[in-house]
Structures are given as structure tokens and as C-alpha cells.
Simulated assay, not measured.
Amino acid sequence: MTTNNKIALVTGGSRGLGKNMALHLAKKGIAVIITYNSNKAAALEVVAAIEASGQKAAALQLNTGDIKSFAAFIAQLKNVLAQTFNATAFDFLINNAGIGMHALIDGTSEEVFDELMNIHFKGVFFLTQQSLPIINNGGRIVNLSSGLARFSMPGFAAYGAMKGAVETLTRYMAKELGSRSIAVNVVAPGAIETDFGGGRVRDNEEMNKMVAGLTALGRAGLPDDIGGVVAFLCSEEGRWINGQRIEVSGGMNL
């Protein structure tokens, strides 16, 4: 495979949407570093799949909700960039890592709220902040939101609110990083068939039918519907898209 010598960092890249993004980025000739929280074996399978396609890859452990661990992670990242990729910086940061949580407002504990906040918002803010010195000028940042920041479904108040915050943050990042020619966008998937949130959309037939009924294209989303959009935003063709929210939901709740 030809390479364009670009490198992407995808958080939460060992499964689901993150894995799909990593594979699509590699197809575009981009080297990929993925992070995983706990499942090292799954992460190494993704690395092996990328390497089998002829592209360089690596995996690093990271809990994106543990903000105090970021300095040590960045130090590790610098080592991997030097040793595996012969580089001192990377080009594309994909803030994808996340957890699913379904609870009504009156059933959401402060502990659960704080965990969601740390992973979905505070972690995105500070991981990006600490990565900025080693992101190349002209690079891209893609943050992940959700259709649930646009439409409301009972049980997702905290999660949807965090994603709404990420969408606002994305516009500020785009404004502040424009002087470095770094474009920043947000991709907002609709309901996707993965193991996210306990696999509710994929494994619960009633839920899957409900999602399909709410979607103009008549089905729930698949990981392959998302990964290529993220890869496109990291391509030359996507260079003039900046500060935008791109919902990839098949037309959910139109």
C-alpha cells in the first residue's frame, strides 16, 4: 500500500466505531495508533488487521476518563511515534472513546454523571489540549457526538448534554486552531449496531425496529456507515470542512 506519511490517533479504537474508523483511515494510506481501555487482545487484533493491509499501526492503553494519566500517556505516545513511525508528531486526532449509559434524570447518580463527564467532555478537552504540541500544523481533529444532542429520548439526558458540550467545544477548537491550519469537526452518529451501551441497538429486536422506524433510510446504522466519513474528514478532499457538525444517522427523527 502507498502511504501519505500521515498518522492518526483514534481513542477507543479496539472495537465498534473506533475500530471501523481505524480500518478506514488505514485504507486511505494513513498510519494508525489506537487506544484501548481494557481489552488489549482486541486492540492487537485491530493492529494486526491494519498491518496486514500494509499500513503501520500500534496500540496504547488509555482510560480517557482518567485525566491525570494523560501526561504519562503523551510521553508514551511520543516514544511510540519515534520508535514505530520515525516521527515526532501526528496529524489526526479522533476523540472517539466513550461509554453508553441509559438512565432517567431521577435515576442518574452523581458518580455516573461524573464518569460520563470525564470520558465524554473533560477527557476530550484535556486530551486535545495535551496533544496540541505534537499535532502537526495542517492536521485535523474529529470529535464524536451523537444524534442525541439534536433530538431527545428519555434516559440519555446526561449523555446527550455532554455531547452537546462537545459540539460547542468543537467550534471553539476550530476557531482557536485555525491559525495552525488545523480543521476541527464533529461527527454525530445516529443509533448504530455495536456493543455500545450493552448492544441495545444491535441485540434488542424491539429497539432495532424502533430505530429503523424513526430513520428515513429504514434501518439502524452499521459501523461501516461511520468510519468512512471520519476518514474522509482526514483526507485532502475534506480539507475545507471546518467547525461543522456532520450527523451520520440515515435521517433519524427528521
Rank of each mutant, 00 (worst) to 15 (best):
T2G: 11
N4P: 01
N5R: 09
K6H: 11
A8Y: 09
G12C: 06
S14I: 06
S14D: 12
M21D: 07
A22G: 07
A22K: 05
H24E: 14
L25V: 11
L25F: 12
K27R: 15
K28M: 08
I33H: 11
T35N: 06
T35G: 02
Y36I: 08
S38P: 04
S38I: 12
A41P: 06
E45D: 15
V46Q: 03
A49F: 13
I50K: 14
I50N: 09
A52C: 10
S53H: 14
S53D: 13
G54T: 09
Q55W: 06
A57G: 08
A58I: 11
A58E: 09
A58G: 11
L60E: 03
L62G: 01
N63D: 15
T64Q: 11
G65S: 04
D66Y: 08
A71H: 13
F73C: 02
F73G: 00
I74C: 02
A75N: 15
L77H: 09
A82T: 13
A82N: 14
A82Y: 12
Q83H: 11
Q83P: 01
F85R: 05
T88Y: 05
T88K: 14
N96T: 01
G98N: 01
I99V: 14
G100D: 13
G100W: 13
A103H: 12
G107V: 03
S109F: 08
E111D: 14
F113H: 13
E115K: 15
M117V: 08
I119L: 04
I119H: 04
K122T: 05
G123L: 04
Q129F: 05
S131L: 01
S131Q: 00
P133Y: 09
I135R: 03
I135H: 02
N136C: 10
I141G: 00
N143H: 10
G147T: 08
L148Y: 07
L148H: 04
L148Q: 10
R150D: 02
R150M: 01
R150Y: 04
R150F: 04
P154D: 05
F156E: 02
A157G: 14
A157L: 14
A158T: 15
G160C: 06
A161H: 06
M162K: 00
M162D: 03
M162C: 11
G164L: 03
G164I: 03
V166C: 09
T168A: 15
L169G: 06
T170E: 10
T170C: 05
Y172H: 15
M173N: 12
M173F: 13
A174S: 12
K175F: 14
L177M: 05
S179I: 08
V184W: 00
V186D: 10
A188P: 08
G190I: 01
I192R: 01
E193Q: 14
E193A: 12
T194Q: 03
T194S: 00
T194W: 02
F196N: 00
F196Y: 05
G198D: 15
G199R: 04
R200T: 12
V201M: 01
V201L: 03
N204R: 09
E205V: 08
E205P: 09
M210N: 14
M210G: 06
V211Y: 02
T215F: 03
G218W: 07
D224A: 15
D224C: 13
V229N: 05
V229S: 05
V230K: 02
F232W: 06
F232D: 00
L233P: 02
E237L: 07
G238P: 04
R239T: 13
N242S: 13
R245N: 13
E247P: 10
E247S: 15
V248Y: 11
G251L: 10
